[in-house]
């Protein structure tokens, strides 16, 4: 733990020094007759290209070009640095031309999704680690189907052994939808551990059940809890994958627009 804290402190310190140096140089360049926007623009372009290399690094795992974890750290801190350079480049002013708006939005979208992804990738994994079991995201539909089969089998067994339709009706009325498929629930992203309300309903229902029905109800409540955890995995892992659906395409669009911006700036900027 100490090692991680020290590493983060070292990284943050390095990042702060780089930002400070860049800020000093920016102030110096701005003070002169040289157009600082060209310098910040090229610096921003270089940072964006470096950031985009991270995805290429993952594809070139066979090459000895550093560990992926190091690249991820580099990606995160370079991204934060790029945001600072972007602020210096634009002066916090909004663009006017449509294509400039597209570039501005693509950068802001990329940076925003990157920051969100960074936050989620730092806060959500512990939640997954604290769950009862680890689940592979792609198999979640399969596990959901298994849970549904178990629940349905349990209700059938309960009806056959107790001659009571109560659990069956409860399942049909309140639980069938829960077990139908993996469900995205934003509540799983909240600060507290969320357990589906169907679980609580079953616990509350227990007082009205006959003694021979209660074991089935408890087992069914366990399945509800397990389904709730499954949905938590589905939501959390889904989010950890979904933000890349914003981040990566916007990065590609931003690169394209940035090249156009660079050409136009030099062609018309007279530099």
């Amino acid at each position: 733990m100490m090692r991680f804290a020290k590493r983060r402190q070292a990284n943050l310190t390095t990042w702060a020094i780089v930002v400070l140096i860049a800020g000093v140089l920016f102030a110096a360049v701005s003070a002169g007759l040289t157009r600082a926007s060209f310098w910040t623009g090229w610096l921003l372009m270089a940072a964006v290209v470096l950031l985009s290399l991270y995805s290429q690094r993952k594809r070139l795992s066979m090459l000895p070009i550093g560990r992926a974890a190091v690249w991820l750290q580099l990606h995160a801190y370079t991204g934060a640095f790029a945001i600072v350079v972007f602020v210096a480049h634009t002066g916090l002013s909004l663009p006017d031309a449509p294509l400039e708006w597209l570039l501005w939005l693509s950068f802001v979208g990329t940076a925003g999704s990157g920051l969100a992804g960074l936050y989620w990738s730092r806060t959500l994994p512990p939640r997954l680690a604290n769950a009862d079991e680890e689940l592979i995201f792609e198999r979640i539909p399969l596990f959901a189907a298994r849970l549904r089969q178990r629940a349905e089998q349990l209700v059938v067994d309960a009806a056959a052994q107790t001659d009571s339709p109560l659990l069956g009706e409860h399942y049909r009325t309140h639980l069938a939808e829960l077990f139908m498929a993996p469900q995205w629930r934003w509540r799983h992203l909240g600060p507290t551990h969320y357990v589906t309300r169907q679980h609580d309903r079953l616990i509350a229902l227990e007082r009205y059940l006959a003694d021979d029905e209660k074991p089935f109800a408890r087992e069914l409540a366990g399945l509800c809890r397990q389904k709730s955890d499954l949905d938590m995995h589905f939501t959390v892992q889904g989010l950890l994958k979904a933000w890349l659906f914003v981040h990566v395409p916007l990065t590609a669009a931003m690169l394209l627009l940035a090249v156009l911006h660079l050409v136009a700036a030099h062609a018309f900027g007279g530099a």
Binding site: S106, K241, L244, F245, A252, L256, L257
Partner: peptide
């Protein structure tokens, strides 16, 4: 697959951006 969907999203975005340009 999720990976392929993301790749398609990238291609679609690039195509749309290029078209707009």
């Amino acid at each position: 697959s999720w990976k392929y969907r993301r790749k398609l999203a990238v291609r679609s975005t690039l195509t749309a951006t290029l078209g707009l340009i």
